[in-house]
Write a protein that binds this DNA or RNA. Structure first.
Lengths: 216, 216
DNA sequence: CATGGCTCTTTGTGATCACGAAACGACGCG
DNA sequence: CGCGTCGTTTCGTGATCACAAAGAGCCATG
């Protein structure tokens, strides 16, 4: 089997393609906590052999997005209460800092883009699309934090999101009521006003509020 | 080649053994920034094939300890000024929080152990052992932070150390003067006094002071 | 009906190989 | 003497295979 391989994807190595696809599925909460994955199954899904699948999985394990049992079986971790609180504390520590660094660089075009994303967040809430809600909520935050010009800090923050991914889907899947993104409005207001303490507070609240409901 | 394999190491998979060994070498600054590594070379060093070497390298790349060029060549990254400042800011953000969480649990036996480690840090400074200094300095911090019962936060902090590893070795290799660990004494004093703001300040200073000298 | 052992299947691990691309070196031309 | 060009070597990538261990299912026995 030496032919085929890409066929549709002109860029990037196979293991990287598998990694990115799996990462998005985990980040968007499309894989349930405790669900098992097999290297041969992943390889078959993406039309590659075990080798690239193994590398992608290893990378995700290193980032905390996946766990492996003593025998090497791979699965999405089920987070304990302490772990959830700790990851929420990390978000509360990192994200206000990122937002604060983005504030002096947040011009009107950025704010308008954030408002547009926020509108789509509202749509997802209205149609009870949990996965779409998570995806657009993260896009809202990432769009803001990208302005902070702190790639290492943003990368670490994203690994925290990644670890929370499967658990968050459980939360928003259970979430029945259509709660409007109040904290997002506060974030936008603080951005417009150049209110740094208010921005930090709003971001911190937004990062921690939802996770409080996750406690078993 | 189906025989041999372990022979000396009864526990753990081969890729994990390679990963841990490489990780320590990077963390202790025994690999210079910009130095190239080859999978076949790593495999030969550890008596394994390319497969476990590749997995170990991939994992370290995921943690930011190694970089790979567009063609897949692996090397320790040379950090830019902005990157160093950002990683220092991350240390300044994370480590005071870890120390603060450890404070209520820091009993006398822990403080005595920290003082013993600190004494060995002084020895390393006296004998101009850069690698040993880095190793014991990290052990000082990790011993304290382990008490905070925040494994995810500690793990992220260690990846920050890992990214700084090769660059730190350059710093301490150039460091001629025998500077005593003043901040470590401040940390120990604050721990004994139960002085939480003082502890945060001392830890923050210790995390950022050395890195200021690294700016090119 | 529960439980223990047995076999067959599934799965991860590591070694090896073919392939293409990048790096390296030397030679020759200007 | 400098520089480009071509052949050689080195390297990463992905596929495939043998192997061991863990799982799952099943039957027999208490």
């Amino acid at each position: 089997m030496l032919i085929h391989s890409k066929a549709t994807e002109p860029t990037g190595a196979a293991h990287d393609r598998v990694y990115r696809a799996l990462r998005l599925r985990i980040l968007h909460g499309e894989i349930h906590p405790g669900q098992h994955l097999t290297l041969r199954g992943i390889g078959k899904d993406f039309g590659v052999s075990m080798t690239p699948a193994r590398e992608a999985v290893r990378r995700l394990v290193a980032e905390g997005a996946l766990s492996l049992s003593s025998s090497g079986r791979v699965f999405t971790p089920e987070l304990s209460n302490e772990r959830i609180e700790e990851l929420a504390a990390l978000r509360a520590l990192l994200e206000p800092e990122l937002a604060s660094r983005a504030l002096p660089r947040a011009h009107l075009t950025l704010i308008e883009r954030l408002e547009e994303i926020n509108g789509r967040v509202r749509q997802m809430i209205a149609r009870h699309d949990a996965s779409g809600y998570i995806r657009l909520n993260l896009e809202f935050h990432r769009t803001l934090y990208l302005r902070s010009q702190a790639p290492a800090m943003l990368a670490i923050t994203e690994t925290v999101w990644l670890q929370l991914g499967p658990t968050m889907s459980k939360l928003y899947g259970q979430l029945r009521r259509t709660e409007p993104p109040r904290n997002h409005k506060l974030i936008l207001a603080a951005l417009k006003a150049g209110d740094e303490p208010g921005l930090r507070l709003a971001v911190r609240s937004d990062a921690t509020q939802g996770l409080r409901m996750l406690k078993v």
